[in-house]
Design a protein around this nucleic acid. Structure first.
Length: 231
DNA sequence: AGATACTCATGTGCTCTTGA
DNA sequence: TCAAGAGCACATGAGTATCT
């Protein structure tokens, strides 16, 4: 097969995220469903990608192989599917595509951040967010909270963000009301931190100033982001 | 409770069009 | 000429509703 420039971009993008679904590729690269499936199948058959169906009721996932890393000249090594982080990984990709689409910003996945920082694993030197959203005028750290972190660990992360001048904002995407409450309690201030209910995409107001409804729609929120970028 | 029909998501096959 | 992309139709498998 002939490998196209777009194939290389797809391979590198998949490797950045570790694993993605065909639906993700379709959305990210503005392809039809059939084209996405067909192209991914060709890349799997050529050995550049590996396909695994983990759960019967869920779509299969694609990951980059050693051959795919070599052909795309990527610096990140290929990674296998980890069941412990499977749902989190998939949701992060969905969120990343969503945020790029809504804000026009550029998403930098956790793996790329670690690569740039030279970090090899979890728990070393500071804290690495699930991704950075690069907007024209600022860098936003994005966190996806699907499970409750311990109070001490949460406080440590919040403290890191508060004292990190290169991060303009931190957006917390919380999957349950319990996690929303927990993060709200830990943040306890407005400004730098935004708490957003996922996947509804409604921003939760925190701190002493409460809006009457308690929530604003993310369309309103992202409209504000886009227009702030134009200024 | 078991059988059947229906729905939905995922994936493939075929054909035509487009562009290099 | 040939590879890629798109559109339509169809197959498959799991979940769910309905009927007996």
């Amino acid at each position: 097969m002939l490998i196209t420039d777009r194939d290389l971009v797809i391979i590198r993008w998949i490797n950045s995220h570790r694993l993605v679904t065909a639906e993700h590729v379709k959305k990210k690269f503005l392809m039809s469903r059939q084209s996405a499936y067909r192209r991914l199948k060709i890349l799997v058959e050529a050995g550049y990608l590996a396909y695994e169906r983990i759960f019967i009721s869920k779509p299969g996932v694609y990951r980059v192989t050693q051959k795919g890393v070599a052909v795309s000249e990527d610096d990140l090594p290929p990674k296998g599917v980890c069941l412990g982080t499977y749902h989190h990984d998939i949701e992060i990709v969905t969120l990343a595509i969503n945020l790029e689409e809504r804000t026009g910003g550029k998403w930098v996945p956790e793996r790329r951040i670690r690569q740039e920082l030279g970090l090899k694993g979890v728990g070393q030197a500071g804290h690495v967010p699930d991704g950075f959203l690069l907007l024209p005028d600022k860098r936003v750290a994005v966190e996806m909270e699907q499970t409750k972190k311990g109070d001490a660990r949460m406080a440590k992360i919040i403290s890191y963000y508060k004292n990190e001048p290169t991060i303009a904002e931190v957006w917390y995407f919380c999957c349950t009301d319990t996690i929303v409450k927990r993060v709200s309690k830990a943040v306890s201030e407005t400004g730098k931190f935004k708490i957003i209910k996922w996947p509804e995409m409604t921003e939760i107001q925190v701190g002493p100033v409460q809006k009457p409804e308690g929530q604003i729609s993310m369309d309103q929120f992202f409209w504000g982001v886009k227009n702030a970028n134009r200024l």
